[in-house]
Each structure stands twice: as C-alpha cells, then as structure tokens.
Amino acid sequence: MIISVASGKGGTGKTTVSTNLAVSIDREVKLFDCDVEEPNAHLFLNPEFENSTPVFTFVPKIDADRCNGCGKCAEICRFNALAVLGKKVLVFPELCHSCEGCRDICPEDAVEEDARELGVIDSGHRNGIFFVQGCMRIGEAMSPPLIRHVRSYARPEDLVIIDAPPGTSCPAINAMKGTDFVLMVTEPTPFGLHDLKLAVEAVKVLNIPCGLVVNRSDIGDRQLWDYAVQEGLPILLEIPFDRSIAEIYSRGQLLVEEVPSWRPIFARLYDAIVDTIETRRSIQ
C-alpha cells in the first residue's frame, strides 16, 4: 500500500505529517521523500544514510565522424535540444527530455548515449523505517524522472509513505499517481483552500481516494469545512496552531517524540486511512 502525503500549497505541514505518521505506525514502513527539489524529511527523521547514488538520464552525444549533417535528429526533437549549424549538430543537454527520438531516427548511427545527472538518491534506515530521498542537482530543471527513480524502491508488499512535492503540475502528479491514498495537508486560509481545491481536482483526474489533514486548524476561517462537506472529503486529523508545535518543527524535531501524546493520534490517522480505503473498495 502506498500513501502519498501531498498539498496544493507549500509549507502547510506535509513533511510534519509524513514523518510523524511514518514513525507512529506499528509495522515496517518505507518513507520516500519525493519532494526532490527541496527534500526536508531527512532533517526530521535523521536516518543513517547507507547509500548515495547519482542518477542519470539519457542525453545524446553526436559522433562527428559518422554524422552527415542531415538534420533529421534536430527535426524530430520537440524540445529544441538539438540544432544543426552547417554540418555540425549542437546539443543543449539541459533541454533534453530523453525521448531518444534522435537516436532512433539517425540514419548514420551517429547518436551515442551520454548522460546528464538528475541528482542523487540517498537511502538508509532509522529504527524500523527504510528511508529513500531524491535530491535534485542544482540547476536541473526536470524533477519527474528523479521522482520516478525514488518510487522504484517500492515493492508491492511494502507499506510506503510518500512525501510529495507541493502543487498540481507534473512533479506532484508523478509523486501521487498510482498510489492508494492521497493524504492532503492543508490550512484553513484563503491561500490554503484555493490551492487545496486545485490539488483535489488533480487527485480526481488520477482517481485516487483522498482525505484531509487540517493543520493550524484554528487560524483563518471556516470555509474549508464547508468545502470538505460539499466534496465529501473526510477530515482525518486537525492540528491546532500551537507555538510550541511550530518551535518543535523549527528545530527539526518530531512532534510524536517531543510530545508523546501525539503518537497514538498519528497511529489512529493511519487506521483512519486504511478504513477509508477499505470503505471505498467495498462501495466499488
């Protein structure tokens, strides 16, 4: 089972929820930090990293001896990553989407495989948790391939929690799609609600059951609750604003370890997620 923890708006407490949830579940868990642009979960989990592997993607390299300058490679490239100047092919590797169309089309077999580093995958353990994170290389523009790499560490029998990137576009979609449940973390403010609505629409496109965690539940206004009722979205947990929670977070500590009374609350959140998935399955 894979639970993705997502949010339309950034900074709503996604990482707080995913890390505290992972350490509160009474069975083996894998926690994947798929927010590869700004991976933060490790700061709270403090795992022992055992492996660090750079991840690469295909980019073309042109063998000038073989190339006849026909320009077919530049013609098939939809991403302007190749240009033919006279008889010479110029490669702009940072624009390449690794479709390998240039390699497939070249009549002279002049397109060879080169690589661009997407970032690094780190993995390690902390107590019963197997932790994997992607950390995107500074200057790299495309996060989805690295997100897919992180997700490849899941086995069908695993319980996986994914800390997804914020938003509703390709990075968030790549972290959420194919998961069994999306736990959406939001806050009851106009920004929080506006971005939540967008994220819920994205989850609908993916057809995944979804539930809410309302963080800082006593700030802002009450429109979020009306929206949740209207959409039939269960609110599985409310966390009130508390300066001491904010301070625990700011120091990189886990709420359930600093205030142990939170542990059973996060354990029950997991039970509620399992219940929601099962109820939905039985309806279908």
């Binding site: 950034g10 900074g11 990482t15 642009e37 700004e38 933060n40 700061l43 709270f44 995107m136 500074i138 200057g139 790299e140 523009a141 495309m142 996060s143 990137p165 914020p166 938003g167 576009s169 990075p171 977070y249 700011s250 120091r251 990189g252």
Partner: peptide, 29 residues
C-alpha cells in the same frame, strides 16, 4: 517554490531575487 523548471524560468535574467526564509531547519536547508 522549489528549484525546478518553473523557478529557473522565473529567475533567469532577473535583476535580483529576494528569498523569504523562515527560521527552521527546513527553511535554512
């Protein structure tokens, strides 16, 4: 937010960027 394609597209060629940071381990990171 982030450091990926929309951020790169937002800052290339700008005069300056202002980074709003909050004082937390993740904010610093």
């Amino acid at each position: 937010p982030g450091i990926g394609c929309p951020v790169i597209a937002s800052i290339t060629g700008a005069t300056a960027v202002l980074v709003i940071v909050e004082p937390s381990v993740s904010g610093l990171h």
